[in-house]
Computed example of a mutant assay.
Amino acid sequence: MAETKRVTASVLLIGDEVLSGRTQDKNLQQIARFLAPLGINVVECRVVPDIEDEIVEAVNTLRAKTDYVFTTGGIGPTHDDITADSIAKAFGMGIDVRDDALEIIEHWYAKTQTPVTESRKRMARIPDGSSLIDNPVSGAPGFQTENVFTMAGVPAICRGMLEDIAHRLEKGAVTLSRSVKGDNLREGEIAEALGTLQDENPNVSLGSYPYFMEVKDGKIKRGTHLVARSTDSAALDGVIDALTNMVSDLGYVPRVDPED
């Protein structure tokens, strides 16, 4: 039986380096893509600096609004890695080095004959009552505190941690996506009809995205990409048919579900 429940998630990106532009975030995209086939929709994303009060406020706000929260960044060995302490504060929990987390870290560092310093032991500080999230890339675990999943900021590590999260999540209705492209179609030409179609189909989300691409001889290829998303496949198909007719009626050749 298909899932029909709407399940939501939010993403909290933590770190001064993201806000400064020095680090380009990739985690929002990969988290959203990982969750989509599970029927979990990312509905909000925030970026906060390495400031405890701001992390605490964001965590508490998001965990009350969405079914799940995914945080990335700030769980390394340095002084500015304050996410674990902030999560503990948000939940009113204690925090300390935990034996099971430390054992994992010691095992990984032993492989490279690297000493486990006091700084590295910081990565074994886990809020009380949290469950560990496996890190198959570099060892140091993330952790789950109720509906909040705390993961590393390095994209490859974050992606690896997601594999230990999927089985913990309640699945929802999968949102399907289809689209129609019209080369040379301008948004203004279809805006009114698109608005009417949206009003007539409230259970389908419609988006319009103009595109501009340089082709041979420096010429510009332009057009509009019309995207429809819904958990109702029949309604989605009906909207795609309507969009196809709209583009055709305006004198353009519709490309349905284009690969590019």
Rank of each mutant, 00 (worst) to 15 (best):
P202D: 10
R125F: 04
A242P: 00
I95G: 06
V7R: 03
K171W: 03
M151S: 07
H79P: 01
P77K: 13
V247C: 00
F70E: 10
R168H: 14
A58G: 08
L194G: 05
R120I: 09
L236R: 08
M151F: 10
M213I: 03
V47W: 04
A88F: 02
T244Y: 00
A84E: 02
D183K: 04
A191P: 08
P37T: 15
L194C: 10
I31Y: 05
T175V: 15
L38H: 09
T231V: 13
R122L: 12
G129W: 11
F149V: 08
S177G: 09
Q144G: 11
F91V: 08
R46D: 01
K219H: 12
T78D: 04
P127T: 07
H225C: 03
A90S: 14
T145G: 05
V11H: 00
T71R: 10
T4H: 15
T150W: 06
Q144E: 13
V47E: 03
S130D: 10
K216G: 01
S130R: 04
P37G: 15
V174Q: 10
E163Y: 06
Y109H: 15
K111F: 15
V253I: 14
V18I: 14
V247Q: 03
N60G: 03
V116P: 08
G172A: 12
D128L: 13
R125E: 13
E103Q: 08
Y252A: 00
L38Y: 12
I157A: 08
T78A: 03
R159H: 12
